[in-house]
């Protein structure tokens, strides 16, 4: 009957089989779960757009463009010498998020500033890229949502944002072509 228990060897072998069955069931269920979860990660076509190439030739000094990268705008600014000088004149210690301008551009390409155009406060898009938009108190960008001011190096100078605008991973393929991501 059901309540009969076998002693000795039979007992342990039986326990082992139940344990093995339960373990395999658990492992199988966990393994089956992974494909479903992984399906929510970026798909191959999304990953194929993870890097973009941008032609810099049409951007005149003093001008900036926006490019779409991974669903977010990237600001690319061809800075004038005055703007570079302004950015470098500020003592680093005075900054909210201290970082020298040199660390935010590629060496020898000091005029090219490439930034992820998302305010580090709460994710709005700062103004200042297109001509006619407010560039804020420091000649860079101004976020209209909560009044964060960024300078000509994209560093936070005034307002609630805690960090400088992010510099994405990028590389110059040629003098006028840059690969972002």
């Amino acid at each position: 009957m059901a309540d009969t228990m076998h002693a000795g060897d039979g007992q342990t072998r039986r326990d082992f089989i139940y344990l093995a069955g339960a373990a395999m069931g658990g492992v199988g269920a966990a393994a089956a779960l992974w494909p479903f979860i992984h399906s929510m990660n970026p798909a191959a076509d999304t990953l194929a757009l993870a890097s973009i190439e941008v032609d810099l030739a049409p951007i005149q000094p003093g001008q900036a463009i926006k490019a779409m990268w991974r669903g977010k705008p990237v600001f690319i600014r061809n800075r004038t010498q005055e703007e570079i000088d302004a950015a470098r004149a500020v003592p680093t210690a005075e900054l909210i998020d201290p970082q020298p301008d040199q660390a935010r551009v590629k060496e020898g390409k000091d005029n090219w500033l490439v930034l992820v155009g998302v305010c580090t406060h709460l994710g709005c898009i700062p103004l200042g890229t297109s001509s006619g938009e407010s560039k804020g108190d420091f000649g860079g960008w101004f976020c209209p949502c909560h009044g964060s001011h960024y300078d000509t190096s994209g560093r936070i100078r005034k307002g609630p944002a805690p960090l400088n605008l992010h510099v994405p991973e990028y590389a110059f393929l040629t003098d006028t072509r840059v690969k972002i991501g």
Partner: peptide, 8 residues
């Protein structure tokens, strides 16, 4: 797995 469950 089926073999183990059958034995069990």
């Amino acid at each position: 797995f089926a073999g183990i469950m059958y034995a069990a």
